[in-house]
Design a protein around this nucleic acid. Structure first.
Lengths: 124, 124
DNA sequence: CGCATATTCAACCGCTTGGTTAAATTCAAC
DNA sequence: GTTGAATTTAACCAAGCGGTTGAATATGCG
């Protein structure tokens, strides 16, 4: 479905098992069998999970006899953080502008206040 | 399928149309019809997309007559960045340690280095 | 009330996904 | 060359997803 890498990365990490695999690979490279051990699914299922991570560019593999050690490619995370930061910052800026506007018209609060109900917490 | 919020958030953002909706909401609140306009899918499809974003906690809605303005809840992004930062840092630390090891044994590079079969369990 | 607008609900469809079992492949080691 | 371990491929299945059309539900306006 998703053809761009960011979609593939997000989709890959949307699965808790795959996130756990990534977490374990962050602690060190591992083989498919090693990775499969803790979960109560077949090793074939884990092999598929790893393929998804590999297609997303999150994991690379070398060869060691029959083994195919998996290695985490952490740089791909930047794709996500860049996307996130961009729109979070945008949203925060807008929020700040809204605050400014509200502050500007402090006294006369007769207008309906935009999104209604509350300005809520602005904390990060 | 995914029952935890992080899974829901990542899964929601794995769709390019939904990411675009989020991007537009970062610039300001909007109604379902407004959001649906640029895409060549039905408004019902967009309504479903918004529901997915809402279930993930990324979007909240107020009421304005028949309209249901959508508002971006940017704090949820923290869920992702926290997860990402944790494991990226871990991977980078490991990388730094590996560098140190390689530096340590500089002269004798006859061993096959790289991912080496030595890493694995124990972890931290 | 009757009508138009905005949104959702329901049923359906084709494709993908995560899982399975069974068979094939790759490579070391005997 | 046979055995055995690690991994992938193939075929299949149930469930979920993104899309559709069509009907229902709110709500403001004459």
């Amino acid at each position: 479905m998703a053809d761009d890498q960011l979609s593939r990365v997000l989709s890959a990490l949307a699965d808790p098992t795959r996130r756990d695999i990534v977490a374990r690979l962050a602690a060190g490279d591992a083989t498919v069998n090693e990775l499969a051990e803790p979960y109560n699914v077949t090793v074939q299922a884990v092999s598929k999970h790893i393929k998804v991570l590999e297609d997303a560019g999150l994991v690379s593999r070398s060869r060691d006899a029959q083994r195919r050690p998996c290695h985490l490619e952490a740089e791909v995370f930047d794709l996500m953080t860049k996307w996130i930061e961009r729109y979070r910052r945008e949203a925060e800026d807008r929020f700040r502008r809204l605050d400014a506007v509200l502050e500007q018209m402090d006294g006369r609060a007769d207008e309906q206040p935009v999104t209604g109900k509350s300005t809520k917490e602005e904390a990060s």
